[in-house]
């Protein structure tokens, strides 16, 4: 499993376009992996744009992304 922490720098938070970018990357680059995004005590599927949105990630929030499975590096 590969895991990394990120601080959100986008002033308007993690809304549709950035969320879509992450989700598209997760789907395209890691088709065979499980991608999880963690914020606080919530964990969502990094391949779901709706899941990403429900996290409500804002400017300055810290999130953790975990990729596990084939081709994870």
């Amino acid at each position: 499993m590969v895991s990394d922490q990120f601080t959100i720098k986008n002033p308007t938070g993690f809304h549709t376009r950035p969320a879509r970018l992450l989700v598209d990357t997760a789907n395209d680059k890691y088709p065979a992996c499980e991608v999880k995004v963690l914020k606080g005590d919530r964990v969502i599927n990094g391949k779901s744009v709706l899941g990403m949105l429900t996290l409500g990630v804002k400017f300055g929030d810290v999130v953790t992304v975990e990729v596990s499975g084939e081709g994870e590096a």
């Binding site: 308007t12 938070g13 809304h15 549709t16 709706l50 949105l53 429900t54 996290l55 409500g56 804002k58």
Partner: peptide, 21 residues
């Protein structure tokens, strides 16, 4: 389910996604 979760998120930008759904 998603709409209910989104309506708990603060900020108009996220609320606007409800309209998209």
């Amino acid at each position: 389910v998603f709409i209910d979760l989104l309506s708990e998120v603060e900020g108009q930008l996220f609320a606007a996604r409800i309209d998209d759904i």
